[in-house]
């Protein structure tokens, strides 16, 4: 009985011990059968993370949590009494914003597409036409939209979708697979990812300002070396935050540049690798601006579309009841753990 409660909290569909705790004849949910993904599910399928990575997300979690704990223990009382209580509350609020966005970016659905929707009769050898890149007319007259068939998921992908091998699924508007989050960044996740970077930078800048202020205003008459001996933790926080701002700020500028061009990171790397003769434009920025056929040619509209794009509906509903024989959760490829024997014509 207690195993049942634990299995609601943490469930690994690929492990046999977790599968034994559920009664297979009734009340089986979709996430419990989802063994051809690499996910580990929490809280009844609502949050997820990957099982086959080196767990960098725990490292990121510790890096985010550590300054808050040190701040609350060492800094907050001095700031509360000597400057204002509002500073402390504001820092806690921005820290929580950063943390909640981290949680949503790392543990929710990035926009995975269901598998095995576009299956064919010729299951062993796909037809030649399915290996091509198809060009279809786009919105404007000379634009073209290119789509491909994903051989692993057996679907015709949407334009800016691609298959992530770590997560083993096709993801809508696939930006990149972030190893610090242990999750892909896709359409349903992108807003949280951007907000996470923004609020991380804001929190860290805030922390820099308050720690240096504390250092300089602690005692006006002591030299700095003596002050550092009295409040070593403030010095630690100041140095820590100076180091911690570098990487998120870099990522944030890159992502904002790509957002203004309504482009994914994958397309950007594609451009970097392609030969320069094929791109229109005089300098690098105009090349990036002109390549993307979805660009609405207005920076402000692009930003609004990316930030305020509706999150969309989840396309693989993991908390629904499992219907027997649901082909989305079966493995129809020719590898060793496939259900290929069942699919016979």
């Amino acid at each position: 009985m207690i195993y049942k409660i634990i299995s609601w909290f943490v469930f690994n569909p690929q492990s046999n011990t977790d599968l034994k705790t559920i009664n297979r004849d009734r009340d089986l949910r979709n996430y419990q059968v989802f063994s051809n993904s690499r996910y580990l599910f929490f809280f009844g399928g609502r949050l997820r993370t990957l099982t086959n990575t080196k767990r960098f997300s725990i490292f990121t979690f510790i890096i985010i949590l550590l300054p808050l704990i040190l701040y609350l223990i060492f800094e907050s009382s001095w700031l509360w009494h000597h400057v204002s209580p509002a500073l402390v509350i504001l820092f806690i609020y921005t820290w929580f914003l950063c943390f909640m966005n981290f949680l949503m970016a790392a543990a929710t659905d990035p926009g995975i597409l269901p598998k095995n929707i576009h299956i064919t009769d010729d299951s062993r050898q796909l037809p030649i036409e399915y290996f091509n890149i198809i060009s279809l007319p786009g919105y404007l007259k000379n634009n073209s939209v290119e789509i491909k068939y994903c051989n692993t998921c057996h679907i015709w992908r949407l334009p800016r979708t691609s298959h992530c091998a770590t997560c083993n699924s096709c993801i809508m508007f696939h930006d990149h697979h972030c190893m610090w989050l242990d999750n892909c960044v896709g359409q349903r996740n992108y807003r949280y990812f951007l907000n996470f970077l923004i609020f991380a930078c804001i929190s860290v800048i805030y922390l820099i300002i308050t720690s240096f202020y504390h250092l300089f205003k602690y005692d006006q008459f002591l030299p700095i070396r003596e002050v550092m001996k009295h409040i070593p933790m403030t010095l630690f926080l100041a140095i820590y935050s100076c180091l911690a701002i570098m990487y998120p700020a870099l990522l944030l500028t890159c992502q904002l540049f790509l957002t203004m061009n309504l482009m994914t990171t994958r397309e950007y790397f594609h451009i970097l690798n392609s030969s320069p003769n094929e791109l229109k434009g005089n300098n690098f920025i105009s090349k990036v601006w002109n390549t993307n056929s979805f660009n609405s040619k207005n920076i402000f509209t692009n930003l609004v579309i990316q930030f305020c794009r509706p999150r969309g509906l989840s396309l693989v509903r993991l908390q629904d009841r499992y219907i027997n024989g649901d082909s989305r959760f079966e493995n129809l490829n020719n590898d060793k753990d496939s259900d290929f024997g069942k699919y016979q014509i």
Binding site: I134, E146, H270, S274, S275, N277
Partner: peptide, 23 residues
Amino acid sequence: KGNYSGTAGGAGALGASAGTGAA
């Protein structure tokens, strides 16, 4: 390889080159 020529040259549909087959 990021080679547009192969992929664009194979762009499907009738009459589809639309200028991407330049390479």
